[in-house]
Design a protein around this nucleic acid. Structure first.
Length: 677
DNA sequence: TTCCAGACGTTTTTT
DNA sequence: ACGTCTGGAA
């Protein structure tokens, strides 16, 4: 028989995209001349994404095979957007491109060489909650944990994580960020040790491992290093200012052979130091790569001059900052509004009403965003929006895949894929009536003693460790697993989930939850989502690594519906809207009280304010509620955020809002009064 | 050991 | 308002 191989569509030699006409001079320079190590310092709204997309298209047009290009972005959304827009530009699908978040690419690389770092390739990825559970288990035997305020599992987790991401010792992390726990460094060190071992025996990696083991792989396995460094002829990295030590090291290694690394970033938008990101990475690029070419994109195409002036004025208060003035090219329109409201409720009413008005004026809901420092700030607003029937989506709410019922269902799948996944065993077993943590761990122990062989284990319908009163509960688990093992080879993830539902989980939901119907619907959504996957393994990876949120589009049928966007500022990075409303701009909320110990933290909060304001294309509303709710003291007076106070007052217009129950006396003020009906 | 109820202390930001 | 911890009953 003759083998016939279809080739990937390679572009013709001649350039059919007119790059020149789509880009300005600075962008064009980057797109066509970025060979060797390059740094692009790109201000907010300067067409950074656009430049990267065109660079990618340019490379592909020049005949660089997609598999030789590595594109690392900060979010999956960004990666998708870049791929989509590049495809539109090229009019074909580049196959085999490596693109995604650092964690994604790390995962992909590690699956190829798992054995080399002591893992099996079916390893499970632990999300933050799983990792916390495992740490909790590791803390069981440690003395002092019971004693006077030992940090909780979640805190221990973040201490360990920070130490991994910053390459610092536990002691250093404690000294810097948790001085009140200094006496526990030995214990935490010990927990970290046990945790690492437990992860290995259960064949699972947490988010940090996807970076640190990836780096370890590149450092210790020469053939892996050779393969990847030779493969990636071009490396493009977005949002470089938010990379941490590990990530920067990984890029250094990957780029060592071809040295074609293009990193893009803006030091003024560095907002992730809390998880170990170092602005220094971008500032010290010249030390990392000799002969690095530096490009600057300093024209802002997004915002009006008024919006940009305000943002720039705020940034002036930061000491540690490269000085850079962004120039706006858009026409003057109107000053940002500083809106004074008396409390959270009038803030919510104002936002809702103003949103409707803007809609009347011709904006669509999806062109408007409400931004906040922390998600709890959106609670009152959400209620108001529901009341008025304004459709919205929340980005940054509870993660869809982290909800209990979703994780319950997934735990069965995870056991099938990786039978040593202790966390999932515990989860699945404790779902059964009569089985709690005690019996569950005994059952798991007996499974391990039997050689961790799933098929063998399921030949007995009552293994050791199952007392009579847990029998009927266990039979439920047994029945499901028995069927899954038979089905797993042939069944799609969706079929398996349906099977779990049939075998009792549906009943379990009905029996245990008030809102069982919503939860059942969620599972249906999960099944829908899973249709894109043939392999259970791939499905699970994406579920854990993908950032999907409650109400977000993958899960909602109403993708094209018009909806208002509610988002944390962190989640809003890289996005833009015609109108942006920033709520909760008062002391005690923004800057966040927990981020005010050091000047550098305040500066990061200020950059956060900068990021928020520069999301606006045309209209910017800064909301100041005069009172806020403190969980200890109740209702307290809230002064304007320092980020407002320090602004030149010519740069905004003050709006005083009068609510229905307002007793405002100063009617004589010259300020505009907007009444809420 | 499990399970339920009531108390408590707690709230940043994310892969 | 939400998960986590505690105590007592089954």
């Amino acid at each position: 028989m003759k083998k016939y191989v279809l080739h990937e569509t390679f572009p013709s030699k001649e350039t059919h995209i007119d790059f020149r006409s789509h880009l300005n001079d600075q962008q064009y320079e980057v797109v066509t001349k970025a060979e060797g190590p390059c740094l692009v310092l790109a201000g907010a709204g300067s067409g950074k994404t656009r430049t990267l997309i065109y660079r990618l298209a340019y490379l592909l047009e020049r005949g660089v095979p997609p598999r030789n290009i590595l594109l690392m972005t900060f979010t999956n959304k960004a990666a998708h957007e870049m791929r989509d827009r590049t495809e539109m530009l090229l009019k074909y699908k580049p196959k085999g491109l490596w693109s995604g978040t650092f964690h994604h690419v790390g995962n992909k690389s590690l699956r190829m060489y798992a054995e080399a770092v002591g893992y099996k390739k079916d390893f499970t990825i632990l999300d933050e909650h799983d990792s916390q559970d495992l740490i909790k288990a590791c803390m069981k035997g440690i003395e002092k944990v019971k004693g006077e305020r030992f940090p909780k599992p979640s805190v221990v987790r973040s201490i360990i994580s920070l130490s991994v991401n910053t390459k610092k010792s536990i002691q250093d992390i404690l000294d810097e960020k948790y001085p009140y726990f200094w006496q526990f460094s030995d214990e935490i060190e010990k927990i970290k040790d046990i945790y690492q071992k437990k992860k290995k025996t259960s064949n699972s990696m947490d988010y940090d491992d996807l970076l640190s083991k990836w780096k370890e792989l590149l450092e210790t396995i020469p053939q892996a290093r050779k393969r990847f460094t030779e493969q990636f002829k071009y490396i493009l990295v977005d949002e470089y200012q938010d990379t941490n030590f590990l990530q920067a090291d990984i890029i250094d290694i990957l780029a060592e052979h071809h040295k074609n690394v293009l990193v893009v970033g803006d030091d003024a938008q560095a907002i992730y130091s809390f998880r170990g990101a170092r602005v220094d990475n971008i500032l010290k690029i010249p030390d990392r790569f000799r002969d690095v070419k530096i490009f600057k994109l300093e024209t802002n195409y997004r915002s009006t001059p008024e919006v940009l002036d305000l943002a720039n004025d705020s940034l002036k208060n930061n000491e540690k900052q490269f000085h850079k003035e962004l120039k706006a090219v858009n026409d003057y329109l109107e000053k940002p509004a500083l809106v004074e409201v008396k409390d959270l409720y009038s803030q919510a009413s104002f936002v809702a009403q103003r949103v409707l008005e803007m809609r009347e004026e011709g904006l669509e809901l999806k062109d408007i965003a409400v931004l906040f420092r922390a998600h709890y700030q959106a609670a009152e607003l959400e209620m108001e929006l529901v009341k008025r029937g304004i459709p919205y989506i929340v980005r940054g709410g509870i993660r869809f895949f982290e909800q209990a019922h979703i994780k319950d269902v997934l735990s069965f799948l995870r056991i099938i894929v990786n039978p040593t996944d202790e966390i999932s065993w515990m989860r699945a077993l404790t779902l059964c009536p009569g089985i709690g943590p005690g019996y569950a761990s005994r059952i798991y122990e007996s499974f391990r003693k039997g050689g961790s062989n799933l098929k063998a284990f399921l030949t007995k319908d009552t293994p050791e460790g199952v007392p009579p009163k847990a029998r009927s509960g266990y039979s439920r688990f047994y029945k499901i697993m028995k069927r899954l093992v038979g089905e797993a080879a042939s069944g799609s993830p969706g079929d398996i989930i349906n099977l779990i539902m049939e075998e009792g989980y549906h009943t379990h939901l009905l029996a245990n939850y008030e809102n069982a119907k919503d939860r059942v619907d969620d599972i249906r959504e999960l099944v829908n989502f899973s249709h894109d996957y043939k392999a259970v393994q791939d499905f699970l990876n994406d579920v854990t690594l993908r950032e999907n949120f409650r109400g977000e589009t993958v899960l909602g049928a109403n993708e094209d519906d018009e909806q208002l966007v509610l988002s944390t500022i962190h989640q809003a990075k890289g996005l833009e809207w015609d109108a942006v409303i920033i709520i909760g701009l008062c002391e005690g909320q923004f800057p966040h009280p927990k981020a005010m110990k050091e000047e550098s933290e305040i500066e990061e909060e200020r950059r956060l304010f900068y990021v928020a304001s520069t999301r606006a294309k045309k209209y910017l509303y800064l909301m100041h509620p005069a009172t806020r709710y403190d969980y200890q003291m109740g209702l307290v007076v809230a002064r304007r955020s320092r980020f407002l106070e320090e602004l030149n007052s010519n740069l905004y217009e003050v709006w005083a809002v009068e609510g229905e129950s307002s007793f405002s006396e100063d009617e004589d003020s010259a300020e505009e009064i907007i009444s809420l009906e």
